[in-house]
Amino acid sequence: MTARTVLQPADITRALTRISHEILESNREWLDTVVLGIPTRGVVLAQRIGATMVSAADLPIAVGSLDVTMYRDDLARNPTRAPGRTAVPAGGIDGKLVILVDDVLYSGRTIRAALDALSAIGRPRYVRLATLVDRGHRELPIRPDFVGKNLPTTEGERINVRLLEIDGVEEVTIES
């Protein structure tokens, strides 16, 4: 097992700042925006993206979290997992622009589950997907709208996203 650092703290910050501005630029209809992170690390990324957006634009922007555990299609294949938190901002998501945020986009199954979870909460005008790392190997017809870094990987490799708030360090490494 060797781990190689592919993103340093400054790279992560730069990627998230760029994503935040891309989201704002794409919001041509000037819609209320809800940034929903997928636990665990997606929630932290969503908070950072939301904060950057708030400081850059005078627009109602709310941040929350969306747990997808109950909607996964692989529950019966794994040991029982403890669900994470869903916290939808008070105004809900109906008619708004929802940005889903995850740390690593891989098979696309988490996002499939997230779309189901969203439909149980409300009906957004648009749903867009932001991810810090896209490592490829999609198993479903899902693609991200905002990507921090495209990392070509093999299926045997592991991507570790570590964030200051959760892990005490800030880096993205690739393990093979």
Partner: peptide
């Protein structure tokens, strides 16, 4: 405590309009 924590998540579901999970 783990059971009670999962129950907290389930209680959140009961507060929303769509109360059903496909799990």
């Amino acid at each position: 405590v783990g059971i009670l924590d999962v129950a907290e998540d389930m209680a959140d579901v009961a507060t929303r309009e769509m109360k059903k999970l496909p799990t």
